[in-house]
Design a protein around this nucleic acid. Structure first.
Length: 923
RNA sequence: GCCCGGAUGGUGGAAUCGGUAGACACGAGGGACUUAAAAUCCCUUGGCCAUUGCGGCUGUGUGGGUUCAAGUCCCACUCCGGGUACCA
């Protein structure tokens, strides 16, 4: 009987389906373990060979834990809302739901072929109303909450209202967008609409006027993590800064907890570090600078309070509220011109164009320590969103201030002994202070660190500032001017104030629209929906939620996916608690992995979940990269030049589908047929061939370099694919897809098969295994067990091969050896393991077996080989009985006939014996 | 610029505490079986020298250091990958 993997895999996949082999229920008699993959966005390209890398790794671990007696929760679902489906809908008119469901079906088919042990009864789709009901529910809870900075938790907004009614802002500890001060009397005198507006300053989900990343091409705003280098991650379109009224989540309120709790997580240091940087805690001081001739003062933030004596000018962000205040009439025209210029630059232009620019406001400020008057400038190198949007400029010790001072010819005062600031600033936070003393404050002679502390102390005492911790983490912008997302359960009242829809009306289902484009008046697509109103007739919110809304709590929903009373039942949550092992890519470090932690903490504050963190252990699988091919189009033509000759022309490289390229040679006919615009393409060939360029890039549809796992499964089987992807190298490593080694693992499975069967007959026997066979087996058990625990799957696969080679060499045919081996193999290659397990006479699935335990007795050596070295150079080996003592080993080594040659008549100065390994003789 | 991570044969990659490199696999070369091919099996395979001897030298990005012993630890540097960036 041949190893017919196609037949075997089909058979067992059907068996698992029919028997609900992987269905999981709460079972308090067993310890639980929750293994989760980051669920995929079902893209039109289908799964490529890179996706399963993490899925296979987690599947192995889930199966391993099951065999070890754990009740394992291992679900899968789809992050089904997203831009690509909507962009496709805009182009084709096809409803995004149709394409999304079609893609999901395709994904499911592909996933099933690889033989994962998911409990599909728990599948979730973020676009399913029964699912997004709970996304909307969580949003309403956030809308109805504020963050109590004293108790460090979310509280119902009603508590805040009660406080404001009784005390105003006096003694209030609440995270807010803007520090407000008012009395209870003032509050109570406000109209309802005014109070509603003011509450937005405190709500955790709030509507606020903020600078947002606006992407005109996509027609929507984007969160910071959806933008990279001034371009949108999806599509790569330019993004500009715009002041807009948008829904936001007060993630920033959780910054301290998000930072501190990182220490409790079993994540890699690098991803924790990425999050720490993103959260960006910086300790500094806020300081007030009086404005000459005015009552108002400028509030600035600095981490270098010690440099106060070197402040030679002030700078405001163009968007700062102070700008209007300090601009004098005679400077008005110049300032307006500058503001206008800045406004028309995109974020990307602002980054690339690092030319110094700015304008004098006409006003001066007073240095509160030196009393000197200094000019106030406006420049776009100061960011509105960080600190207070205003800085004190210390050109001697900040490179940006330095460049500005040089450009506008402003004074530069060095403050650190020996610092040479003639050609560049001295930015290091070290050295001894100078030029920094007067009757109020004396810093001369101090180290920078001491000077910072003393200055902070002084400004607090003098009432000109206070110590302040700033975070870089901004609130998440939560609305999208898009169709394909969760609708907000929000309507607008007569005063135009947003109001919560009653919880009983959830889910608020996404309405149908005639087109997926903005309305003629520029409203989001939901503006096209008929009767898009609350039961009271008031208009509903037209924006939808962003992609990360649905993915922030999906791991909780898997615990209790069919519950229509709660996101997750409390008892069920108390059993599954949190994800024990989460597997996914690092690209979510500053997006999903922050939002989920925030969302979970919010729910934790209310006791909806019992763990403060969602993901205990995180493994980041590397990306399997694709190998892309390029053709080179000659500028302004439809002519393509082969890569060898491309340097003679002005060319644009264009990605070409790797499936119409073989060994970098383009199939010209297929290329012409590939796309209509290439139908009459001309070619400049070399030697009659068109050679494509290539590059290792991310595997993605847009790069046309996708390799489909289905093809690999059809040719080699799922078990081979699984083993091979693990054998490629450590799961954390990124590597280009390459099928070169796949025959090796396939051969291993065939060899194993042939050990079992001779023709149709099982050739295994019931005999007593030899000590050698037992040793080989137990070595394998130990190695594989330890490797799986360490996620070192590639060496596990190697261990299987070694063991099989040993068993084959000793002609071992004992069932007692192969039976445990099959169990060990089951997590890696479940189909063949199932087949062999049944061949061994078992009626039940191998899933119900128990993981073998190794016995050290079998691993003991009777004799041990020592390598004897002289002065570190290995010279000969000696074999001694296992029980030989250190001293005896030393004597045996020196007594050996070879020793005399290397001792060369001298006495050894020192002899080092490493037990079980080697002897080193120092002569 | 800053913060992480990395560099080992022709290739992917092994190597717990520092313990005497290159596991395993691919590829390559040679052989067996076969009319032939495929499949399968066996041998060789870091480099250089010696191969009718058992061997010798060298070798983990570069240069230093610590140690009886360094891919592993320390210092300096080069290159590559990732993240992040006018964050005051």
């Amino acid at each position: 009987m041949e190893y017919n993997f196609n037949e075997i895999e089909k058979k067992w996949q059907q068996y698992w389906r029919d028997n609900h082999t992987y269905r999981t229920t709460v079972d308090t008699s067993k310890p639980k373990y929750y293994v989760l993959d980051m669920f995929p966005y079902p893209s039109g390209a289908g799964l490529h060979v890179g996706h399963p890398l993490g899925y296979i790794a987690s599947d192995i671990y889930a199966r391993y834990k099951r065999l070890n007696g754990f009740n394992v929760l291992h679900p899968m679902g789809y992050d089904a809302y997203g831009l690509p489906a909507e962009q496709y809908a805009i182009q084709t008119g096809q409803h995004p739901e149709v394409t999304t469901f079609k893609n999901i079906e395709r994904y499911r088919e592909q996933l099933d072929k690889i033989g994962f042990c998911y409990d599909w009864d728990r599948e979730v789709k973020t676009c399913d109303p029964a699912y997004y009901k709970w996304t909307q529910w969580a949003f309403l809870k956030m809308f109805g909450s504020y963050y109590d900075t004293g108790r460090e938790q979310a509280r119902p907004i009603e508590e805040l209202i009660a406080h404001l009614e009784a005390h105003g802002t006096e003694g209030l500890h609440a995270a807010c967008s803007e520090e407000l001060t008012f009395t209870a009397g003032e509050w109570n005198a406000l109209s309802k609409a005014e109070r509603d507006a003011r509450l937005m300053n405190y709500r955790i989900a709030y509507r606020g006027n903020t600078m947002v990343n606006w992407c005109p091409k996509l027609g929507t705003v984007l969160a910071n993590d959806e933008v990279s280098e001034g371009l949108s991650i999806r599509g790569g379109y330019p993004v500009e800064q715009k002041l807009m009224s948008q829904w936001c989540l007060r993630v920033s309120a959780y910054a301290p907890r998000l930072l501190d709790d990182l220490d409790t997580l079993e994540w890699t240091e690098s991803i924790k570090e990425t999050q720490r940087n993103w959260i960006g805690r910086s300790e500094g001081a806020e300081m007030l600078f009086p404005i000459v001739g005015r009552d108002e003062q400028l509030l600035i933030f600095t981490t270098r309070a010690d440099t106060i004596f070197g402040v030679t000018f002030m700078v405001l962000a163009p968007e700062s509220d102070y700008v209007d205040l300090v601009t004098t009439d005679e400077r008005r025209a110049a300032v307006d011109a500058y503001l206008d210029e800045v406004k028309h630059k995109t974020e990307r232009e602002r980054m690339i164009d690092k030319k110094v620019s700015g304008v004098f406001s006409g006003s001066n400020a007073i240095n509160p320590v030196t009393g000197k008057e200094i000019p106030i400038y406006i420049s776009d190198y100061v960011l509105a969103g960080y600190g207070t949007g205003a800085i004190m400029a210390v050109p001697a010790h900040d490179s940006r201030d330095y460049a500005f001072a040089r450009h506008f010819d402003l004074p530069i005062i060095p403050l650190i002994e020996g610092a040479d600031v003639s050609s560049e600033s001295f930015d290091a936070k070290e050295g001894i202070m100078t030029n920094s003393s007067n009757e109020r404050l004396q810093l001369n002679g101090l180290q920078v660190k001491e000077a910072i502390a003393r200055t902070k102390e002084y400004i607090a005492r003098a009432g000109i500032g206070r110590v302040k911790v700033n975070y870089r983490l901004r609130d998440a912008i939560f609305s999208r001017q898009r169709y394909w997302g969760e609708p907000f359960p929000i309507y607008y009242d007569e005063q135009g104030q947003p109001q919560a829809l009653d919880e009983s009306l959830l889910p608020l289902k996404l309405p149908e629209v005639d087109k997926f484009l903005p309305t003629e008046t520029g409203e989001p697509p939901l503006g096209r929906a008929k009767n898009w109103t609350a039961p009271n007739g008031r208009p509903l919110e037209l924006c939808t939620m962003p992609g990360f809304a649905g993915s922030s709590a999906y791991y909780l929903r898997y615990m209790d996916p069919h519950n229509d009373k709660a996101l997750v039942d409390k008892d069920v949550n108390a059993y599954w608690r949190q994800v024990d092992l989460y597997v996914g890519g690092t690209e979510h470090a500053t997006g999903h992995l922050i939002y989920s932690r925030f969302w979970n903490k919010f729910l934790y504050d209310y006791g909806f979940v019992c763990e403060p963190e969602p993901f205990k252990k995180l493994i980041n699988q590397g990306m399997i990269q694709g190998r892309s091919n390029f053709v080179y189009r000659v500028k302004d033509s439809n002519t393509f030049v082969t890569s060898e000759l491309k340097d003679n022309y002005e060319v644009t490289p264009i990605h070409v589908d790797v499936n119409i390229v073989k060994n970098d040679i383009l199939d010209i006919d297929k290329f012409r047929a590939w796309r209509p615009e290439f139908a009459d393409a001309e070619f400049i060939l070399n030697d009659g061939k068109y050679t494509c360029g290539w590059a290792i890039e991310k595997m993605s549809k847009s790069m046309f370099n996708v390799v489909n796992p289905d093809d690999v499964v059809a040719n080699y089987g799922a078990d081979t694919l699984r083993l091979y992807e693990m054998f490629l190298g450590p799961i954390e490593a990124s590597k280009p897809w390459d099928t070169n080694g796949i025959d090796g693992v396939h051969r291993f499975l065939k060899k194993l098969w042939n050990q079992f069967f001779e023709g149709d007959k099982l050739r295994l026997t019931d005999g007593q295994p030899s000590p050698e066979a037992l040793k080989s087996l137990h070595k394998l058990i130990k190695k594989v067990t330890q490797d799986i625990e360490a996620f070192s799957y590639n060496t596990s696969v190697a261990a299987f091969m070694i063991c099989l080679n040993e068993l084959t060499a000793m002609k071992c045919r004992d069932k007692a050896i192969y039976e445990p081996l099959v169990v060990l193999l089951a997590p890696f290659a479940p189909h063949i393991a199932e087949e062999l397990w049944h061949a061994l006479g078992h009626a039940e699935s191998v899933t119900g077996a128990s993981w073998p335990v190794w016995n050290e007795e079998y691993l003991k050596e009777s004799t041990i080989n020592y390598t004897v070295s002289f002065n570190g150079k290995p010279r000969f080996n000696i074999a001694v009985p296992a029980a030989t003592s250190r001293d005896e080993v030393q004597q045996l080594a020196l007594a050996h006939e070879g020793a005399a040659r290397w001792l060369d008549g001298k006495q050894p100065r020192k002899v080092i014996v490493v037990p079980g390994k080697l002897v080193n003789v120092v002569v």
